[in-house]
Amino acid sequence: MKLSLWLITQKTPISKVTELAEKAEKNGFDAVWFAEAWRETIVPLTAIAMKTKTIKFGSGVGQVFPNNPTTLALQGTNLQELSDGRFVLGLGLSTPFVVENWYGSHYGRPLRQMRESIEIIKGIQTSKSGNRFNYEGELFKIKKYKSPVELEKPFPVYMAAIGPKMLQLAGEIADGLVIGALHSPRYLSENVYHNLKIGAERSGRNLDDLNIIYGQICSISQNRKEAYDRARKSIMYTAQYPHYQTVMQQEGFTEEVEAISQALEQKDYDKAATLITDKMVDHFSIAGEPDECKEKLLRYSDYPGIPMLTLIPFKVSEEEVIDNMELILETFKK
């Protein structure tokens, strides 16, 4: 089973991020992903490219609104050249709060923004050296752009998608799909695959043409209670978002979601965490002692794509998150 590591960090030095990527490569992991949550992605990914030799790496995911698509294409081209073809560009919408408050950018027409961004990134990559790239969109208009580098192997573009229309767009134009940190076989069947297929049929593609990666909360400790309590906090983070609440409700946790939501609205995070039951932890995460987690990972062996193992630094110290990453790499070493 292929595995990848999903790095979601705030204060962790880039030197430590690259150290984890090197260890992931050494321990047989297929890929490492860096999230544009509190930090931007390009500098850490450049450091990873320079410190590793074989492992795939990418943005999981970068934000599409504050980042100009031509700039993204150029950054991706540089990383693809630097790494001899190991880079993957992952793009997502983020939220209006982050885009408008943190970046001062307008959040609007997300479907069109994502479509045009990917079309431009792919168009720039595939334009032959010496030719001029032109694009006439509703949001972006590019005239006579000359790509400085002709890539032998263009880098793939993955999309983070949740809603039906965005999933259909991913099926239509993206090279891969990034699924968030909370999911289930039922959610994938009823929400994801159906819409991906609609999009794929628009462009005459097969779903096999689309690579899938999915976030997977993973909390490991020699102390089982400690592992479960950390996992509760990652699940609590996801419970702030309506789409993840829907997944929980689909899986039979409607009463729990209502109580957790009330506690979160009151910013009573301690209470919200205690309301996440052991049953929810078992259902939505891999948590426990190392050998226990090895067994729990097996239930995802029939899942499509590759899991991105992670612990979200929400109400958990970043030191604990990094220690957990070290245990993930050691526990699932090949």
Rank of each mutant, 00 (worst) to 15 (best):
E255L: 08
S203C: 01
R230P: 00
Y303I: 04
D268Y: 07
D268H: 09
R224A: 15
G305C: 04
P290C: 03
D278S: 12
A272V: 12
A273I: 10
D229A: 06
A200D: 05
E201F: 06
K225R: 13
G252H: 07
I220S: 00
E226W: 04
D229G: 03
F284D: 01
D278A: 09
R205H: 05
N206G: 10
P307N: 07
S219L: 07
T274R: 14
Y237R: 04
L298C: 08
E258S: 14
R224K: 15
Q216S: 08
D291Q: 11
D268P: 06
K296E: 14
H194V: 13
I220Q: 00
R299S: 09
L297V: 13
S261F: 13
P304T: 04
Q240Y: 15
Y214P: 00
I217E: 01
Q240P: 12
G204P: 03
E190I: 06
D268T: 07
D208N: 12
M280V: 06
K197P: 00
S285V: 05
R230M: 12
I213R: 07
I260K: 05
K271S: 12
Y228R: 11
E256N: 12
K225I: 14
L309I: 02
K279L: 14
E265G: 15
I220T: 01
R224L: 14
E255S: 11
Q249R: 14
A259D: 07
C293H: 03
D229V: 09
Y228F: 15
R205E: 04
T277N: 12
Q249M: 14
K279H: 15
P242R: 10
S261A: 15
E190Q: 09
A239D: 06
R205V: 00
N206P: 03
I212W: 01
A259I: 05
C218A: 10
Y241V: 14
E265W: 15
G252P: 05
L207G: 04
R232V: 04
S301G: 03
L210P: 00
I286Q: 04
A273R: 08
K233P: 01
D291Y: 07
E292V: 09
R232F: 08
I217G: 02
K225M: 10
V247R: 02
N211K: 13
Y300T: 05
